[in-house]
Design a protein around this nucleic acid. Structure first.
Length: 589
DNA sequence: CTGGGGATGGGGCCC
DNA sequence: TGGGCCCCATCCCCA
């Protein structure tokens, strides 16, 4: 009793789901393209993926080993077992690239297939891949890069080493992998065919995998304190679990493709996309409640950050959508394939309101209406506190990178430098160009009137205030900001600060498109998307995205109230609450 | 219902 | 790059 097409149907369904982004639980970043997929599927196809998806929801692949178009084929292969063969795709070069990618991703069957193809065509198996230490080492590096943020160096090796506890059970030959060139590994797999390849990995997966891996997968903890005993134990940094590393990687990962992705993503097309998706993704549509996890209520209340990002050009939606749909292709590859447009087109089409806005903004730059809102919104809504005034436009103005894809106005030069209005065909060129602007120039622009305070207005206000911190300890802080006159101890810090006066926000969130002035902030922001809460309270198990929060939280348990109101003697566990309390004393009411 | 305190999330910024 | 701290915005609970 066996259904003949069961497996096939199942795959078909999964592939359709992938196209729609339905139940996709992992995002793979390849250069400036994002692909959504199902962890289970990836894990079942490659042990390498298995090790990655175990701890991360966002995976950044080494662009030297795989590019978006190749990865798309890889993904298609994983979900269909077929290698599509369009004219270009069946080129020797493509197979070579596929082989490299397959080797890198440990997709043995695919690698074997590519080899066969290459053999037939007489081409060399894999350019530079095999025995040369290069590739392998690169793989490792890559891995490490992925998990870079965390220490557990040894564990980060690419093919999971046998010793890694939480790794899927290393296959018998697993240990050898380190010593083998990719080629060798593949030879084995190919030779043995299914067995060595998938079979093998699968076998492991199923067996060792399930057993050996606690469902850490969801536990995004990065460095949860060793303690906790329970689940966290496994996660503890020392337990050579990779989790920490990996989850951490997420952040790094993200940062990796930032620049491009930001710009590109928006325009990107979605490969499997299905327009419906957009619609279906409630989050997006109702922005307000959107995607963000966390507390619903709060979220909703919270300034609709999600919705607005658009301003950045990336409009959150763009980003989101794409993701939802499944694949976002950056300009370089996919987008170019405007053709793909179908994909993007369709997908975007729906959101497009945004894009349109974008364009407008582009046009006037001022636009930003909504702008990033995230903050501004919050702020503004909040009572106009910060946002306020100029607020309106800030962000958009700040974004140097333009959304591409929707700006016919700029022709091929989709990346426009807002300060000077020049357009560039690629984000790299724009970046290079931006560098040519001297800080002074930028400031001048700002002062010229175009400048819209990006960050907190409040902040700005402070800055503008003559009495500001700027004047403090000028002696010990010889580096002074020419714009707000704040002073700093070292030039690097000053430079960092000065960037806050620029019109740019060079660090976009790959997920929502929100732009940030500092990479670290963006990375931190990413954690909220990914649910990474590495810091766990040993007492109650509550987890936090920041160490500081945990420290703060611990006072709840200890009862420590270090902050005292000088006016009424009230004590508080948190300084911010004391501040809030002080307002009560000072406010008219 | 309202105000105040406790607690948490997110972003900016400095070190 | 990450940690730490500040600020804002909220939510929840309680009086």
């Amino acid at each position: 009793m066996e259904l003949p097409n069961h497996a096939k149907q199942l795959l078909l369904q999964l592939n359709q789901q992938r196209a729609k982004g339905f139940l996709c639980d992992v995002i793979i970043v390849v250069e400036n393209a994002l692909f959504r997929a199902h962890k289970n599927i990836l894990a079942a196809s490659s042990i390498y993926f298995k090790s990655l998806v175990l701890h991360d929801n966002l995976i950044n692949l080494d662009t030297e080993m795989v590019n978006p178009s190749v990865f798309r084929q890889v993904l298609d292969f994983i979900y269909t077992g077929k290698l599509l063969s369009s004219s270009e795709q069946s080129s020797e070069q493509n197979f070579s690239a596929l082989l490299t990618a397959a080797s890198y991703l440990q997709l043995h069957d695919l690698a074997a297939l590519c080899r066969k193809k290459l053999k037939r065509s007489g081409g060399k198996p894999l350019p530079g891949k095999p025995s040369t230490p290069g590739p392998l080492s690169r793989l490792r590096l890559n891995n490490q890069r992925l998990s870079s943020s965390t220490p557990t160096g040894t564990n980060n090796h690419y093919p999971p080493t046998p010793s890694e506890a939480d790794q899927p059970q290393p296959q018998p030959d697993e240990g050898l992998r380190d010593k083998l060139s990719d080629d060798e590994m593949f030879v084995g797999s190919t030779g043995k065919n299914g067995n060595g390849g998938n079979g093998n990995s699968n076998g492991n997966l199923s067996s060792g995998g399930s057993a050996g891996e606690p469902d850490l997968g969801l536990d995004l903890s990065k460095k949860s304190p060793p303690s906790a005993g329970t689940a966290t134990d496994a996660l503890s940094p020392h337990s050579n679990s990779q989790e920490s590393p990996q989850s951490a990687s997420v952040s790094t990962t993200n940062s990796a493709s930032l620049d491009d992705s930001s710009t590109t993503l928006p325009g990107a097309d979605t490969c499997g996309s299905d327009p419906m998706e957009l619609n279906s993704s409630k989050a997006e549509e109702n922005h307000p409640d959107g995607p963000p996890p966390q507390k619903k209520s709060r979220q909703g209340a919270r300034k609709n950050e999600w919705p607005k990002r658009e301003a950045s050009g990336l409009k959150s939606e763009d980003h989101d959508r794409p993701l939802v749909n499944g694949v976002i292709v950056g300009p370089k590859d996919g987008r170019s394939s405007s053709g793909v447009g179908g994909g993007s087109g369709s997908s975007f089409a729906s959101d497009q309101s945004f894009q349109c806005k974008e364009e407008e903004e582009g046009g006037e730059n001022g636009q930003d209406h909504s702008e990033e809102s995230g903050q501004s919104d919050g702020e503004s809504t909040g009572g106009g506190g910060r946002g306020g005034g100029k607020g309106g436009g800030h962000q958009s103005a700040n974004y140097v990178y333009r959304q591409e894809g929707f700006e016919p106005a700029f022709g091929d030069n989709l990346y426009v430098c807002i300060p000077c209005g020049k357009g560039f065909p690629s984000s790299e060129q724009l970046n290079a160009h931006v560098e040519t602007h001297t800080e002074d120039e930028l400031y001048i622009k700002e002062e010229g009137g175009t400048f819209v305070k990006e960050e907190d207005e409040e902040e700005a206000e402070d800055l503008s205030a003559p009495v500001g911190p700027s004047n403090f300890g000028a002696e010990t802080r010889p580096f002074k900001c020419t714009v707000c006159s704040k002073s700093y101890k070292d030039p690097a810090t000053l430079r960092q600060h000065e960037k806050s006066h620029w019109l740019t926000r060079p660090f976009p969130c790959n997920i929502c498109g929100k732009m940030f002035t500092q990479r670290g902030t963006m990375t931190r922001h990413m954690r909220s998307h990914l649910g990474l809460k590495p810091f766990a309270c040993e007492e109650c198990g509550m987890r936090f995205t920041r160490q500081y929060r945990l420290t703060e939280h611990m006072r709840v348990h200890s009862g420590e109230k270090p902050y005292e109101c000088q006016l009424c003697g009230g004590k508080f566990t948190q300084q911010r609450n004391l501040i809030s309390h002080l307002r009560m004393h000072t406010s008219p009411s």
